[in-house]
Design a protein around this nucleic acid. Sequence first.
RNA 1: GGCCCAUUCGUCUAGUGGCCUAGGACACCGCCCUCUCACGGCGGCGGCACGGGUUCGAAUCCCGUAUGGGCCUCCA
Length: 349
Amino acid sequence: MPVRVRFAPSPTGSLHLGNALTAVANRRFADREVGIVVLRIDDTDPSRTVEGGEQAILGDLAWLGVAFDEGPVRQSERGSIYADAAERALASGAAENDSEGAVRLTREGTTLVRADGTATYHLASVADDLELGITHVIRGNDHRPNLELHQRIARALGRELPEVIHHGLVLGEDGKKLSKRHGHSSIAELRDEGLPAEAVRAYLDELDLPQHDVQLDLARLRRLAIDAIAGMSDEELAAAAGASVEAVPVLRGARSLVEAREYALLVLQPESAKLPDEARPTLDRFIELRAPMPERLSLDESRALVRELKAVGGDLRVLRLALTGAAKGPELAAVVAALSRDEALERTA
RNA sequence: GGCCCAUUCGUCUAGUGGCCUAGGACACCGCCCUCUCACGGCGGCGGCACGGGUUCGAAUCCCGUAUGGGCCUCCA
């Protein structure tokens, strides 16, 4: 029997890292067996759906490279399935109507259908997992206490629950449940911080299916970002940082895409800095060396130039300041390579 | 409070009774490299939560305690 799993977020906006872990875990689980991933939007509670929330999730999944094979299936559009399920539960005596008109599990009282006729998460989730032919449910530990309840609901419908696998949650660096307060908690935030998609994906892949809750390791994430940037081709890096390919040499030393953009700006729009009086000799030497050379220099040629300037006693810090307006930044030779001859001469004139 | 789950360096982990005076990665510290911030190279610090069993032998099995987490909604 082919494996069918599902990822079932509520449409509340950009995925939080823990949800993203569940999405990746489902995709990986299915891929091990050449299985199917169904994307299901759990929007049974209208008060919880956020405008554009589904789009944000779709965007996050695409960014992370998590594909799905079926869906999105929206629970808000599947009322008749839940109505049938409720009917069956009532018929079997496992559930009954209460005085308000809601359908509740006999004895324990868990609500299956609200008085307004909409299904609660418990009923909708179980009925859908059965109806969609899900073979394995992979979800976070926060759902573990629901396991027995869901098994009872499945039996009330005359079926058995699929196999359920729980994984640990992602906690903040303080060990508390991850929330907006922590920052760095949603995919959108991580993307805005300049972490490459490959890095976030690699982090989630590394976590795999944690047995217990794990603390968010930002240092690890940042390290993976450095690795991801190092692994990009010039074209990929330029595209990811929104810079031109000529600027790539200066982007190479950056540890995040945000930092890469800042480096690119140093070349495109240098800040004006006051040069010390003793800067002139170094700049004149630079001009002497640079002027007779081609409009564009390769990184190796630039390195040779910088080496030469240093050999004749040039103050490289002064050159950096003149070229970028900043005391810190990418490798000096990369800056020289990224600037045209005219631009370089103008900034040192 | 009740129920459930988990517990190996700061973090993520390897480890399923002898190969473990517990291995790795990232972080951290030091040194080297160096035009800055980084990258890189080399080295270092650092852990089996605790207490009882079982066993010739326990990180590994059992029990208890502690700690952490999750849930106890007509939220998912």
